[in-house]
Amino acid sequence: MHPVLKTVLQRLALGLMTLFLVSVVIFSAIEMLPGDFTQAVLGQAATEETVTAFRRELGLDQPAIVRYVDWIGGVVTGDFGTSFSGRAASGVDRSREVIALIAPRLENTLFLASMTAIVAVPLALFLGITAALWRNTAYDKGVSASTLATISMPEFFVAYILILVFASLWPVFPSLANVRPDMPFWERVYRCILPATTLMLVIVAHMMRMTRAAIINLLAQPYIEMARLKGLPARTVILKHALPNAWAPIVNVIAFNLAYLVVGVVVVEVVFVYPGIGQLMVDAVTNRDIPVVQACALIFAATYILLNLMADIISIVTNPRLLHPR
């Protein structure tokens, strides 16, 4: 087998293994709940029968392995179980399917994240690479200092400053990003400007710093000095000698930051009351709605793992040592 294929397959297997273990960790969350949580969910007035019925519905009378297989089997087919909220002590069940809660919100979150990424990735790479190439110039120092300041700020600080300036003092953008499914595309974009800008500022700062460090590290390699000593012009040194070796570090930086973006949306969604999966999760945590929390956690974790997996695979297939084996 070609070493590239072999390494990619190994990496894929490792990724699947990680996903499996993560799902086990998330599943065991419910195991760690105190024994009387059914009472808490249904309310103090719940009768013995309703509690027993609820326990049976959750499968608490069965061994954990059986329940895990049931749960993960459901997840694979898009069935995350039923929410805890909407249940009453009387046994009346107005709870909703978790998937019905998540689906529309997941779409909203992906919209916000993509909108941010489309602007943030090229901008951050441009700033990072130029700062590395023009090291120790005023430009580099300016960019580095301002990004250091940005990464030090909590997301909600950035968000409220933007709201104060652009929604309150000069009301050009809405401070509430209350999008609805029937909204036209540009209306959605307009309403998402402030949350997307907040995320972008934070992500660009992180990504720019990491890109700069990666490029500087690359430029310190002896083969770059050799290329200079061969009298090649700066453009050729960068394009021909640095770039082919830069893909792996750059892709890793991008993946890492997109993964970070996924987490960053939680706070930003809450600030702008954006109907996304992050806000859903925060609400579910407040209400201790475990099935929803598990579903959200699994989605976030899977995204995170898949992004890193993709970065690794791109690094593998651009590695000349693997592409051209001995």
Partner: peptide, 14 residues
């Protein structure tokens, strides 16, 4: 110029 470590001074990508 001929460097001490040829392994490091050759670009791995070409």
């Amino acid at each position: 110029y001929v460097a001490q470590s040829a392994a490091a001074a050759f670009n791995p990508a070409h």
